[in-house]
Design a protein around this nucleic acid. Structure first.
Length: 190
DNA sequence: TGCCTGATGTTCT
DNA sequence: GAACATCAGGCAC
């Protein structure tokens, strides 16, 4: 079964866990490319007060209610973008926020877009968007298509996944809906 | 090393 | 008009 079909049938929480370890391939306009591995996600769905979709479908959140496997990009704090993978059935507002990725190759190309090299490259939701050149023009992008492709990988073992409360939100703060790969050094925080 | 704050646009009330 | 799923630089310790 295709990953997109799996994601469509999953809850946001299951999908966020499923996406750990999967890879993203980004082709840049200048012909270069980079491959990264997802190591940290957060789950959001419409029953969740911290989610953009909680207050219903609006112009901004429309993509979240669309088909699974699309990219939901939003702008926040006046200067930053964050990217989510839309999950769940069409009409249900759910997504998994990608908080951190680990560069596999093309690290040099990512570093060109970031002020600091190394770990600082992609260990935060706004940082990885900058490194991957994801902005509002990518909102609604289909992740089976270039120039940004989501590549399925086998699910991680439950033992390799750490669940913690989410970061940087003010509502529903005790739900352990942040998932990261245990021991990975590219996480946004330990 | 670690806390504090400024920058800054979009969305919703 | 306020809130916001943030980051990076500056300054104090």
């Amino acid at each position: 079964m295709k990953l997109i079909d799996e994601l469509e049938e999953m809850s946001a929480v299951d999908a966020a866990r499923r996406l750990l370890g999967c890879e993203l391939i980004r082709e840049f306009e200048d012909g270069t490319a980079a491959r990264v591995r997802i190591v940290e996600t957060e789950a959001y769905d419409q029953t969740d007060a911290a989610s953009h979709s909680y207050n219903g479908r609006t112009q901004r959140t429309d993509v979240m209610f669309g088909p699974a496997g699309r990219l939901y990009v939003y702008f926040t704090y006046g200067m930053h973008y964050c990217m989510n993978v839309v999950v769940g059935p069409e009409g249900y507002g759910a997504a998994a926020l990608i908080r951190a990725v680990e560069p596999i190759n093309g690290e040099d190309f990512l570093a060109r877009r970031r002020p600091k090299p190394g770990i600082e490259l992609t260990n935060g939701p706004a940082k990885l968007c900058q490194a991957l050149e994801v902005d509002k023009s990518m909102n609604g992008h289909d992740l089976t298509d270039r120039p940004l492709v989501l590549e399925p990988k086998p699910p991680l073992d439950d033992a390799a996944i750490v669940a913690t409360p989410r970061v940087g939100i003010s509502k529903a703060i005790d739900m352990p809906w942040r998932f990261c790969e245990a021991g990975n050094s590219y996480l946004s925080r330990p």
